[in-house]
């Protein structure tokens, strides 16, 4: 299990394929180039029409008052400049959605990373038997259908008949109205999201942990380091760059929560689980304010872009400090 996919560099490439070999028939290069475009064309055209154009249009759309009247007749469409953005910034529900999303990310990312790292470190212990079986079991929730497992968790979190409150009851704690009150709705959904997604990060951590040479632990043991010290001084430095990168990828994922509140709470109670994407969906496909919804999409994009730029900056700094 050491495939942290490094595609082997291909040393032959540069020497074996000179641009023009004298012996080659004329037109050979042209034919190959034409073949290349033939292979590329379907995918590139699809990406242009169904990805690039919509993304660019989203920006343009966010500068219009596209609504249900424009949907019926394009003559009703007007260019409104930044009005959608202004109106959003003074809309309390938009800020609620931003705040809720931020809470999800701030609480959820450390929880997911901690669960993933904990599971990976335990699984990586040398004395663990049947590792592949445990690995698949812990990863399984990640591949399940989000909507279906969200429905399952809604019942696990049920106030009266839920297994989770039964567990609390059996250790003498009072029942919690998990999805019914604003204080506990985000933690409740987070329990589900962490359960569902930690396996993904766990697999990545596990792959990196297995690249840490045993000799390092050996040396630490000889120096009298205990379990915790080995973790602090051998494991953690080895996986720190991965932890950082994974956590930033996880942030982007938490920015895009939608099905969880849609299925489990419908944004409630008291709008405590309305996320940015949920807000965009309601604005666009419930109220048909497509201009305003596009502005939401674009703000979401800027947030994700900001996180990605931080990711690039961090990884560059890490790469710089290693060499």
């Amino acid at each position: 299990m050491t495939m942290v996919a490094q595609t082997p560099p291909d040393p032959v490439h540069s020497e074996r394929l000179p641009a023009k070999t004298p012996t080659k028939r004329r037109g050979g290069i042209g034919r190959r180039e034409r073949a290349a475009w033939g292979f590329l064309a379907p995918a590139l055209i699809a990406i242009a029409i169904f990805f690039v154009i919509p993304v660019v249009s989203a920006l343009l759309l966010s500068l219009t008052d596209f609504d249900i009247y424009a949907l019926a007749d394009l003559a009703n469409l007007r260019f409104v400049g930044l009005q959608n953005y202004e109106r959003l910034l003074s809309n309390p529900l938009f800020w609620t959605a931003m705040r809720n999303t931020a809470w999800f990310a701030v609480l959820g990312v450390p929880l997911t990373i901690a669960a993933a790292l904990g599971a990976a470190v335990i699984l990586n212990a040398r004395t663990v038997k049947w590792r592949p079986i445990w690995r698949v079991m812990l990863f399984a929730p990640y591949v399940t259908t989000l909507v279906a497992t969200a429905v399952v968790w809604r019942y696990l979190l049920h106030t009266r008949y839920g297994v989770i409150n039964w567990g609390l009851d059996s250790i003498g704690l009072p029942a919690v109205d998990w999805l019914g009150q604003p204080e506990s709705s985000i933690p409740a959904i987070l329990m589900f999201v962490v359960w569902k997604t930690f396996g993904y990060n766990m697999l990545i951590f596990l792959a990196v942990l297995q690249t840490v040479p045993d000799e390092l632990y050996e040396a630490a043991r000889i120096d009298g380091a205990g379990r915790w010290k080995q973790f602090r001084h051998v494991t953690l430095p080895a996986i720190a760059p991965t932890v950082l990168l994974v956590s930033i990828i996880t942030v982007a994922a938490f920015f895009q929560l939608f099905a969880e509140p849609y299925v489990m709470t419908q944004g409630g109670p008291a709008q405590s689980t309305v996320t940015v994407l949920y807000f965009m969906y309601e604005e666009g496909f419930k109220w048909w304010n497509l201009g305003s919804a596009s502005a939401v999409a674009f703000i979401l994009f800027l947030c994700i872009l900001a996180v990605t730029l931080v990711q690039l900056w961090v990884s560059r700094r890490l790469a710089g400090s290693e060499t």
């Binding site: 394929l17 641009a19 290069i29 190959r32 180039e33 290349a36 475009w37 990406i47 169904f50 990805f51 690039v52 154009i53 919509p54 993304v55 249009s57 989203a58 759309l61 982007a252 895009q256 994407l277 965009m280 666009g284 497509l290 919804a293 596009s294 999409a297 674009f298 979401l300 994009f301 994700i304 872009l305 990605t308």
Partner: peptide, 26 residues
């Protein structure tokens, strides 16, 4: 091999960071 291959590929990797939800409405 074809003209502009590396630049085109870099452009594709660049737009990989754009979440598909952005273009949902258009």
């Amino acid at each position: 091999r074809f003209k502009g291959r590396d630049r085109l590929f870099q452009a594709l990797v660049g737009i990989l960071v754009i979440p598909a939800q952005i273009g949902t409405l258009p």
